[in-house]
C-alpha cells in the first residue's frame, strides 16, 4: 500500500484569525489526516468526511452551546457537540442573533 504524504491543512483551507475555531476550505478538501502548521509528524487533525470548498471545519472539539469564531468574531453557537475535523454548517451551527 502506498501511503499518501501527509499534507498541510492550510494548503486546502484558510484560518482567518488566531482566535478562530473553524477553518474555511478554499478548495474541495478530501477526508484524511492533515498537519496544522509545520514541524509535527503526528496527524494534527483528522477530517472524517470530504469537505466542499467554501465550507467550514472545526479546528478543535466544540461543546454544544459553545461559541464558534471566524474572522476573529462570533458567528454563532454550536447546536450539538462538534468533533475536531468535522464540517460546521447549518446542521450544527445557529446564529446567536
Amino acid at each position: 500500500m502506498v501511503t499518501r504524504p501527509r499534507q498541510n491543512l492550510e494548503d486546502y483551507a484558510v484560518i482567518l484569525s488566531d482566535k478562530d475555531n473553524v477553518a474555511t476550505a478554499l478548495v474541495d478538501l478530501p477526508a484524511g489526516d492533515y498537519m496544522l502548521g509545520s514541524g509535527s509528524d503526528q496527524p494534527a487533525i483528522t477530517v472524517p468526511e470530504d469537505i466542499k470548498g467554501g465550507f467550514k471545519l472545526a479546528l478543535s472539539d466544540i461543546d454544544k452551546g459553545g461559541p464558534i469564531y471566524k474572522y476573529g468574531y462570533l458567528i454563532g453557537l454550536a447546536t450539538e457537540d462538534i468533533a475536531k475535523g468535522n464540517c460546521v454548517h447549518v446542521h450544527n451551527l445557529i446564529s446567536s442573533v
Binding site: I75, G76, S95
Partner: peptide
C-alpha cells in the same frame, strides 16, 4: 433572519449565519 438572510443560495454555498455573512 434565518431562512431569509443568509438566503438559500448563500447557505448552499457554505455560509451558515448572518454573522458570518456580515463579517
Amino acid at each position: 433572519l434565518r431562512g431569509c438572510n443568509p438566503a438559500p443560495g448563500n447557505i448552499k454555498a457554505g455560509l451558515s449565519t448572518i454573522e458570518e455573512k456580515s463579517l
